[in-house]
Design a protein around this nucleic acid. Sequence first.
RNA 1: GGGUAGGUGGUCGAGUGGUUAAUGGCACCAGACUGUAAAUCUGGCCGCGAGAGCGUACGAUGGUUCGAAUCCAUCCCUGCCCA
Length: 374
Amino acid sequence: MKPAITYELLHECKQTGARRGVIHTPHGDIQTPVFMPVGTQATVKSMTPEELKEVNAQIILSNTYHLFLRPGHDLVKEAGGLHQFMNWDRPILTDSGGFQVFSLGQLRKISEEGVEFQSHLDGSKKFLSPEKAMEVENALGADIMMAFDECCPYPSTYEYTKKSMERTTRWAKRCKDAHKRQEEQGLFGIIQGGFYKDLREKSAEDLISLDFPGYAIGGISVGEPKEKFLEVLNYTTPLMPKDKPRYLMGVGTPDYLIEAAIAGIDMCDCVLPTRIARHGTALTSQGKIVVRNATYERDFTKLDPECDCYTCKNYTRAYIRHLVKTNEILGIRLLSIHNIKFLTNLMDKVRIEIENDNLGNFKNDFYRKYGYIK
RNA sequence: GGGUAGGUGGUCGAGUGGUUAAUGGCACCAGACUGUAAAUCUGGCCGCGAGAGCGUACGAUGGUUCGAAUCCAUCCCUGCCCA
């Protein structure tokens, strides 16, 4: 059987060890390291698929939990699958609903069988299990599916994290057994274990024995300090197979993306660029700017002098501020376009610098300019 | 000219004798946001002060009262109705 997802390593940065590669999927190749915009409800909020292509999105995310609730996976299947439903012909990755176990807080109850959610839409009770998540993800038909896991909050005790991680591993096995379309969709396992090294090692070891076509690190970037994040990232990534994609879930900010690449990560996703866009903030080569602020009222320059996106080619900070202040949809759209392009441009540079064995220098330059180093 | 309803902080609008520097909404000023319960949330928003605090303030002036945005008198202004 030919696996749906394969990884090809092209080069390793001699300066940092970062990987430059390609992920082959049923909907085309993905150049890595890659940043994946998030489109929870079968749409990257405010952006058309054409615009996503224009900002160089190679692959986008969508969410099992949300589409399960509405419009329902049966409907998406009837539409011909998620690709056809939303008119996106490049790769898609679906998250399993595992993150909602974390983010819905009081609205869920976890058992060995699965998770009972109280729908955030109408309060009705819904149930997701590894089997149900696979049924939904199979119906959605994404190129990459994530196993159903539990993302532990930070901080969590060793005992709780251990139990949770072991259950996530059992769930991963059940996911694998329930996954019906292995030739069309690759199922990734998610390494958990919180902020405990031995638990991460155990999780990685057990999941690797299940032989998934790719692996993710889950449960970091959940509010911990950056040192903690880096610590877990740097001891967990080397545990992951070299011949398969490595995905760091839920990251992130420009510095985290660079750190992830250096650690040997191939894929990252984050809601940040689109969320802060809706809240009036732009990522720029000189740091983030809250363009909604009064300072930009009469600033007739572009968001980022170094950016080549549609927004920066055509509009000023003053105009975008005006749109944001007046609640005009276009402000959100222009900022979303810019922020995603900023991150895909960043990853373009990261890939080039890996090929040039120069990612370490690039990181230092970037940090200085962005303002991470004063 | 007569009658009537009103004049509150940037704005709209509560409050009708004391815990009122004065509820709310909006506007404004900031901050947060990392596998999206998020076009959301949090804080600030009379002046001076780091702060305790001090000073001004509910159309104007005068009065009643221990105490007034709230009661009384006169005046000014606005809406509506009648002539």
